[in-house]
Simulated assay, not measured.
Amino acid sequence: MRAQFEAAAEELRDDLVAVRRELHEAVEVGLDLPQTQTILLRELDGLGLEISRGKSLSSITAVLRGGRPGPVVLLRGDMDGLPIAEATGLPFASTSGAMHACGHDLHMAGVLGAARLLADRREELPGTVVFMFQPGEEGQAGGRLMIDEGVLDAAGERPVAAYALHVDSATPRGRLVTREGTMMASASALRMTLRGTGGHAAFPQLAIDPVPVAAQLILAVQAFAARRLPATDQAVLSITRLRSDSEAGNVLSATVDIEANIRTLSTATLDTVREHLPALLAGIAEANGCTLDTEFIASYPVTYNDPTETREVLAALDELVGAERVTRLEAPSMASEDFSYVLQEVPGTLVFVGAAPDSGPLPLHSEHALFDDAVLPLQATVLAELAWRRLERG
Score class of each variant (00 low, 15 high):
Val273Ile: 15
Leu350Tyr: 14
Thr88Lys: 10
Ala7Pro: 09
Leu277Cys: 11
Gly103Arg: 02
Gly142Ala: 10
Glu392Met: 09
Asp245His: 10
Ser188Glu: 11
Ala268Gly: 05
Arg243Glu: 15
Ser186Tyr: 02
Leu165Ile: 10
Gly110Cys: 04
Ser186Glu: 03
Val375Gly: 00
Val382Ala: 03
Ala185Arg: 00
Asn261Ile: 05
Gln35Asp: 12
Glu43Gln: 15
Gly150Ala: 14
Arg195Lys: 13
His276Val: 07
Ala185Glu: 01
Glu11Asp: 13
Ala3Glu: 03
Arg21Phe: 09
Arg144Phe: 05
Ile60Lys: 03
Val236Phe: 05
Leu125Ser: 04
Thr182Cys: 14
Glu123Thr: 13
Tyr163Glu: 01
Met132Thr: 01
Phe133Pro: 00
Pro377Ala: 11
Ala187Pro: 00
His368Gly: 00
Ile84Trp: 06
Ala235Arg: 00
Glu25Ile: 02
Ser246Asn: 09
Arg76Asn: 04
Val236Asn: 01
Ile208Cys: 12
Asp372Asn: 10
Met79Gly: 07
Gly354Gln: 02
Ile39Gln: 12
Leu145Asp: 02
Ile239Ala: 03
Ala8His: 11
Met1Ile: 05
Arg173Cys: 10
Glu337Trp: 01
Leu23Gln: 05
Leu12Asn: 01
Gly198Ser: 12
Gln234Ser: 12
Pro230Lys: 08
Ala18Arg: 14
Arg263Leu: 13
Leu206Thr: 13
Ala155Pro: 08
Glu259Arg: 08
His166Thr: 08
Val273Trp: 08
Leu378Asn: 01
Gly283Lys: 06
Pro332Thr: 09
Gln234Thr: 12
Pro34Met: 08
Ala202Leu: 14
Gly143Lys: 04
Ala3Gly: 08
Asp32Glu: 14
Pro307His: 14
Arg13Met: 09
Ala316Asp: 15
Val326Asp: 01
Ala185Lys: 00
Leu112Ile: 12
Met79Ile: 07
Val160Pro: 00
Thr197Leu: 10
Ala279Leu: 15
Leu33Thr: 06
Ala214Lys: 01
Pro69Cys: 05
Leu41Asn: 11
Val29Thr: 14
Ser59Gln: 09
Val167Asn: 00
Gly97Trp: 07
Pro172Lys: 10
Glu247Lys: 14
Ser169Leu: 00
Gly283Ala: 07
Ser52Ala: 14
Leu280Phe: 11
Leu329Val: 06
Ala214Met: 07
Gly142Leu: 02
Gly249Ser: 10
Thr171Arg: 02
Met99Ile: 05
Ala85Cys: 07
Glu22Ile: 05
Met184Arg: 07
Leu118Gln: 00
Gln37Met: 04
Asp358Cys: 02
Asp338Cys: 09
Asp358Ala: 14
Ala207Pro: 08
Phe224Ile: 10
